[in-house]
Design a protein around this nucleic acid. Sequence first.
RNA 1: GGGGGUGCGCCGCAGUUGGAGAGGCGGGAUGGACUGUAAAUCCAUUGUUUCGGCUGAGUAGGUUCGAAUCCUACCACCCCCA
Length: 424
Amino acid sequence: MDFFEELRWRGMLKDSTPGVEEAFKAGKVTAYIGFDPTAPSMTIGNYVQIMLLTLLQKSGHQPVVLMGGATGRIGDPSGKDKERQLKSFEELDSNLQHQVKQMEKFLNFTEGDNKAILANNLDFYKEMNILDFLRDVGKTLTVNYMMSKDSVKNRLETGLSFTEFSYQLLQAYDFQMLFKEYGCTVQMGGSDQWGNITSGTEFIRRNLSEKAFAVTTPLLTKADGTKFGKSESGNIWLDPEKTTPYQFYQFWINADDRDSPTFMRYFTLKSKEEVEALEKEYADNPRGLKAILAEELTRRVHSDEDFEAVLKVSELMFNKKVDSEMVKQLDLKTLNAIAKEIPSYQVPKSTLDGQINILDLLTEQTDILESKSAAKRAIKNNAISINKVKATSEDITVSSADLIHDRFLFLDNGKKNKMIIEAV
RNA sequence: GGGGGUGCGCCGCAGUUGGAGAGGCGGGAUGGACUGUAAAUCCAUUGUUUCGGCUGAGUAGGUUCGAAUCCUACCACCCCCA
């Protein structure tokens, strides 16, 4: 199965320019996706695009990762209804480096004749002055053409700075540069990038009289209509420092059953036959299917060891048979492993020497809950457990005697929010 | 530049002849029950507090026994005209 067919059955194909399918069939194609370093880590939203490159490389084509060292300084108006806040150069640089490191985990940059190429569009512009830009880049497209793009049209009412308006010129010129330097003929991206990508194919047609192609993926939406990639507590990052492997795993486990078919296609590297066989096998066990997905992704994005650890912790935390007595029997090694995975809070040991009120523990010593009222509410609603014992009254106190191994305290807020408090 | 409108809890709306606001509806969110750590459904909660209160209708003043409501200035956003 070739790359294009692969995208099609996975449902990852939204639009493409004519001729691209033939181009992929004809031989090795070099294709790129751009990533602006607006955050210190990639999210699972970005991961859709990484999967595109992964699948591309797997089918023998050559991926190019273009980091937006320059475009990140400008801000892409696509899909945004407001002008962006500019980020400092230092922040962008450090973000870029983190993201490159993450990329290296998913693509092969070192071996083979289709090893991935890393480029930074800052290199295209840092020697360029404003006159060069206006003559060589700006002259290619008319303002009329640029204004017809959705990303611009949608902002005409609310406002769009010249800076963001110019973004599509940069992205278009990027494509032209990559075409010249690496023979890169395809740019891929999310469907919100369609306008910017086609500006690029237009550049190549006008300035180089060559043909280049665009491929976009549909915007991934969840069954409940909320934005993909966010949990209640925020973004799901690929960086274990920002989203622990446990939280990452839980994200997939907690996904809506109805999203499983989409997620299976978007995020696993399994073949069509394997996916379809699994779906048949797990038709009556949607949780099992999600577990398979969660496992594959946790192993790939984090590591085998992380997955093993996460699985152990998850089973322990969610096993209903685990009661107060059992958690007290846990050995120190296991506890330390758990503390690494689930959100943990450090509390000075001295504060636990006396009796500390549960409300103070929840609000003042930690920021598990934002106010005393919220803490009282949670207790009233039967949400809080300490060491697997429900807190039944707001007068309950905690002391060092409750600590397991003189160090840890399990705290649940609701069914899913498991935390550990560590006395230091 | 001129004219008009809007501004309250996480969000969107109601609500005014000036009469008790922690306060209606809808959504969201959180918790609980049932399940499966899913969905749907149902229930509860949704400013804060030392449980006495305190704070609260864009901001700052003013009128008044009493202001979300009336007046003045300013700020922000929206609409119309130029």
